[in-house]
Amino acid sequence: MIRFEKVTKWLGGSLVLDEVDMEIRQHETFCIVGASGAGKSVSLKHMVRLLTPDSGRIFVGDDCVNEARGKDLDRVRNRFGVLFQGAALLQWLNVGDNVGLPLRMKTDKPDEDIDRLVKEKLEMVDLVETFSKTPYELSGGMRKRVGLARAIIEDPEIILYDEPTSGLDPVTSRTIDRLISRLKTDLGVTSVVVTHDLHSALAIGTRIAMLHDGKIVETATPKEFIKSDNEIVKGFLEAQYITTEAEWKRDPSP
């Protein structure tokens, strides 16, 4: 579905992605983990061409993202829904307008239809009551859920999550995890989750990739991941107090 071929990226004088090869399969939940500054978000941004690689190519289906322009790029991007780290809601619009923004701007749907669709998506994230509120009136977790509702408003094939649980308390984080799992089941989407929260990755991921110093050091299923011999992976697991399989519970969905 998404394929990185020797993607290299320099940012601000340092090598962020170093000939990264990676493949994300359809309908899986692919988690990219790693320390801060390891290049997780950068790799995510490459998938929707918010960044262009210095060398290498990125394919989404058969489309080469880093060579797409104009309408082709729009078409590729339309396959994605992205949940940004801070939810990236437009501050001067209320929740309903934020979620409905892509439809309002890109389609000629009447307002009633848009409102109906918006409410539908808000219901999926359990926030239908916030329709008329402004982003200021929402908590961090609620904002992320509204951002998620906006990401799925156009029924994308792929949803990208950039640190969906960062800055949230553990309870809210698990709520988000469950939401990601539920959306995957309900909508049948491919999910790419960038996170440093290994609990979350182990809980929701089909496969987990570990990025370190611009390279993928390990790609494995959660079960294999915690048993990995890779020293970097081991260190990362230990840092989050995860040592055995018994210490995490698979599948957070209700």
Partner: peptide
């Protein structure tokens, strides 16, 4: 602020042209 909080990126990804919008 929109750039810093990735709102402009969000617009780009939604294929809403930031310049037009």
């Amino acid at each position: 602020t929109m750039v810093v909080s990735e709102e402009v990126s969000a617009l780009e990804v939604m294929s809403i042209k930031p310049v037009r919008y």
